[in-house]
Amino acid sequence: MSVPQDYLATPPPRRFRFPLRTVLIVIGVFLVVVLAALGAYAYGLSASFDSAKRFEKSFPAEADRPAATDDASQNILLIGSDAGGPGSDPGEVEGTRSDTMMVIHVSGDRESVHVMSLMKDSWVEIPGHGQDRLNTALVLGGVPLAVQTVEGVLDARIDRVASVDFEGFAGITDALGGVQVNNEVPFRSFDKGPITLNGKQALEYVRETDSFTDGDIQRLRNQQAFVKGLMAKFLSAETLTNPGKITELMSAATPYLEVDSGFSSGYAVGLGFELRNLRMDDVTFFTLPVIGPADHGGEVAIDVDWNQVAVVRDHFREDTLDEYRPVAQP
């Protein structure tokens, strides 16, 4: 993949809006580890999980993909989209722009999970279409092209793919009984310090931009704080030892989930069982390294830091993301 050459010394001003769906995409992580502590009971949820919609086609032609690795690591691509939701048809995500993408890397020894966000406006190579924003891949070629694009960026194979719709977010939050976050910057009705959010409040919390002097940067911090609170609540004994709460969470999430044909309850249960000892300290979040906004022939997008991406690629290929230390992002 070539590196964009037309970087601007002084990019034009633009307030980039970080994805509104970032938090919900992390629910995809839960669908991997949700069954981890439930043993045989997990199979009782298979009918609910397997009712999720399936993509008509998920992956590009084998000749266009990176080679599979010999280790047991797994890479799961999660796509956030406005499409989907109860009553929608399979494949409806096709032709829409993805609001966010994340790659979940599950280590081969099952001792860690790394969740890498990709900014939707990242300027990358879209196979067969030249360079464009990352989120156009879904428009131009559906899920297979989105997978192929991400595989090209990472030079690593995607094993499973799922799309989650935003509309299920509030119900999932409420199914957990609310989520506590440590709010660093007070705004509107949200005080400074520990606060507990219900689904409706959480939507407002992760969306807010105008109340902050640094706009989307603080919103991203709020989203990350909420993600940590969400995962902490989910991975607590209060949740994982309560079959009724797990069932409620699954029921809230499944209608808004679309997956590839191999992402079955058997796969989720098996991987979840292998991750049964996973705790919050074992889950790491980072972002694909970027430089900042730049103009590309009239198109303002986010330039990717390809030098740092080369480092990320090595860690993906070698299953050594535990050793990766992300650089500060602009």
Rank of each mutant, 00 (worst) to 15 (best):
Q5A: 09
L8H: 05
A9R: 10
A9N: 08
R15K: 14
I25R: 03
I25L: 14
V26M: 12
I27Y: 11
V33T: 12
V34P: 04
A37Y: 14
Y41K: 09
G44R: 10
S46I: 02
S48G: 09
F49N: 10
D50G: 01
A52N: 01
E56Q: 13
F59I: 02
A63L: 10
A67W: 13
Q74T: 07
G84S: 03
S88G: 03
D89I: 08
R97D: 07
S98R: 11
T100M: 13
T100D: 05
M101C: 04
D109P: 06
R110I: 03
W123A: 10
E125Y: 07
G128P: 08
R133H: 05
A137W: 03
Q148T: 11
T149I: 13
D155F: 01
R157A: 12
R157S: 14
V161S: 04
D165W: 14
L176Y: 02
V179S: 05
V179D: 04
V181D: 04
V185C: 13
P186D: 13
P186C: 08
F187K: 00
A202R: 03
V206N: 00
V206H: 01
E208F: 01
L220F: 13
K228A: 15
K228M: 14
G229C: 00
M231N: 04
K233T: 14
L235Q: 08
A237L: 10
P243H: 06
T254W: 04
P255R: 15
S264M: 02
V269T: 07
G270A: 15
V290N: 06
I291N: 14
A294F: 01
D295S: 09
E299F: 11
R313S: 08
R317M: 14
L321V: 07
L321S: 08
E323L: 13
R325A: 12
Q329R: 09
